[in-house]
Structure formats: C-alpha cells, structure tokens
C-alpha cells in the first residue's frame, strides 16, 4: 500500500501550551481541533472524528490517515544532560515544503544569517554526501562543513561547523551540528512544520542542546532570530509552491540536498505544497 502525505504524523500544538479552550487550526487544508480531555490528555478531532494522537518532543502530533508507525525517533533527545528547548511556533505564508527546503539550504547562511551562521567571504559550500536511506526511507546529508561566525548561542568566535541533515517526514527536518561546548556530540535542531494549506504553514522549531551557560530564554531568542530572518525570504519566494521540475531554477552542486529532498517528494507523490510543472 502506498503511503500518502495524509498518512504521516504532523505537529499541531505544543503539549505544554494546551489549555482547556480548544485550538482550532488546519492540517493539509482540513479543519482540526486540538483540545484536552477531562483527564488532561490531548485530543484531536476533524469534523467530529477523533484522530490518532501522540505526544513527542514536547509537541502534540496527529495524522489524517493511517500511519505506518509511531512518530519518528530522535535517539539523541533521550541523552542525559541535554536541554530540550520548545521554541514555540511561527506562522509563515509559504508552502510547507518550501519551509523545509529552506532549512536544508546550506548556501544561504552567509547571505541571510550574516555574521551569525555565515559571513562573507566564506560562502563556498564544500562537497558533501547525500543519500536516500531506503531502510528507513529518509533523506540524509553528511559531511557538511561550513564556517560560521557564531554557530550557536554558546559559541565563542568563529568555527568550522560540521552538520548532518535528516528528513524523516515530508515536512520535518532534523539538523545535527557540531556542539561547541562538548566535542564529539551533536546538537540537535529540528524544524517541525505543520502544513496548514499548500501556501501557509506553522513552523515549530525544537532543539536538544548541550548548553549549560545560556538561559532558556536566550536559546529561544537565538533560534527565533534565525527563523525570523528566514521568514522574510520564505514569504517572498516565487513560485510560492516548491517546484518539482527545476524550470527556471538552476540548481548547482551546493543544492544536492535540496535536489535529493525534491526527488524524494516526487518519488512518493508528496505533492501538497509542490508545483509539478514548471511555470
């Protein structure tokens, strides 16, 4: 049986943010309601029908279809000593697939996150490796290296940061990056995207970091600053939908990860938020 986008899990709320009053929102264009039952457990309904619910990584997840399994795992999230950071949500007027693709775009760091995640003249993206891991059906990029003036809230001065990117679902991405205070470990930064419509989404960043110095507020503000810089770019991208045919775009070697993501979407027919034929 083929898996559709409806069969995947999507974040729809912060578990800690749920109140007795319901949260009315959208998922893949359909109206849903997120609320707490009498026992304080989250429930999600669509047109009165109860949907499956899981709570993971501080978020409430649901699905409109029949999922093949649980919400994907991030084993590092269970490591002792990590601080789990619920960043909150940002509504963005862009395709949910565009939001993920932007997160995967390494080359934009020096131009959009100038003097934080990148800086000129350090604009070159070194060769990295990309694969679609068939055993887990995920897109992975490894050996990604980039010079960053301030790679994290806890970083002191510029370092060459190593990254791994992972796409475990059509609108979710996990970034593993060099952990400045703890060499040998990876900081985990995620982008969970709730697809509202084909051209709007709600983004729920979440992190699992080794950082004993920063306050929770400082870590949240750092990540919000980064994402707000992205938002102005995302809301002005044309075409609004993510093209699965390059059309007028000219992807280069640095865009290998974006191409692998789009190929993966195309192969599975995950086209909610995608443009199929070049304009």
């Amino acid at each position: 049986m083929s898996v559709t986008m409806q069969d995947h899990w999507y974040p729809v709320a912060l578990a800690s943010g749920l109140r007795r009053s319901a949260r009315d929102t959208l998922l893949l264009g359909r109206a849903i309601r997120v609320a707490l039952d009498d026992g304080g457990a989250p429930v999600v309904t669509a047109e009165g029908r109860a949907l499956p619910v899981q709570v993971k990584f501080g978020h409430v997840w649901t699905t409109l279809g029949v999922p093949a399994g649980d919400v994907f795992d991030i084993p590092e999230a269970d490591q002792p000593g990590r601080r789990l950071v619920e960043v909150g949500s940002v509504k963005v007027r862009c395709s949910p697939l565009r939001a993920v693709e932007n997160f995967l775009d390494i080359a934009h760091f020096p131009f959009v996150h100038t003097d934080v995640l990148g800086s000129e003249p350090h604009t070159e993206v070194e060769r990295y490796e990309v694969e679609i891991r068939d055993d887990v059906d995920e897109v992975w990029a490894t050996k990604v290296k980039f010079f960053q003036p301030q790679a994290a809230r806890s970083a002191q001065g510029g370092i060459t940061t190593e990254y791994m990117y992972r796409v475990p679902g059509p609108t979710c991405s996990v970034l593993y990056k060099t952990c400045p205070p703890r060499p040998g470990e990876w900081d985990v930064i995620t982008l969970f995207v709730q697809p509202l419509t084909e051209t709007t989404c709600e983004v729920w960043p979440w992190m699992a970091l080794f950082d004993d110095d920063s306050t929770m507020t400082e870590m949240i503000h750092f990540q919000q600053l980064i994402f707000l810089q992205d938002r102005s770019i995302l809301e002005n991208q044309l075409p609004a939908l993510l093209p699965l045919d390059p059309g007028r775009e000219i992807p280069t070697r640095a865009d290998m990860l974006s191409i692998a993501y789009r190929r993966w979407l195309k192969r599975h027919g995950y086209t909610f938020g995608a443009q199929l034929v070049a304009a």
Binding site: D245, P246, P251, T252, R253, R263, K266, V277
Partner: peptide, 19 residues
Amino acid sequence: PALLDAMEMGCLLGPIDVW
C-alpha cells in the same frame, strides 16, 4: 565543470513525468 554539475543536478530532478 560547474555547469556540467548544474546540468547533472537539473537532470536528476527532471520533468515531472520522468523518473
């Protein structure tokens, strides 16, 4: 060389009716 890379990247995606 950089444009040959770009050609490869573009072709890997290709038109929607081709895999």
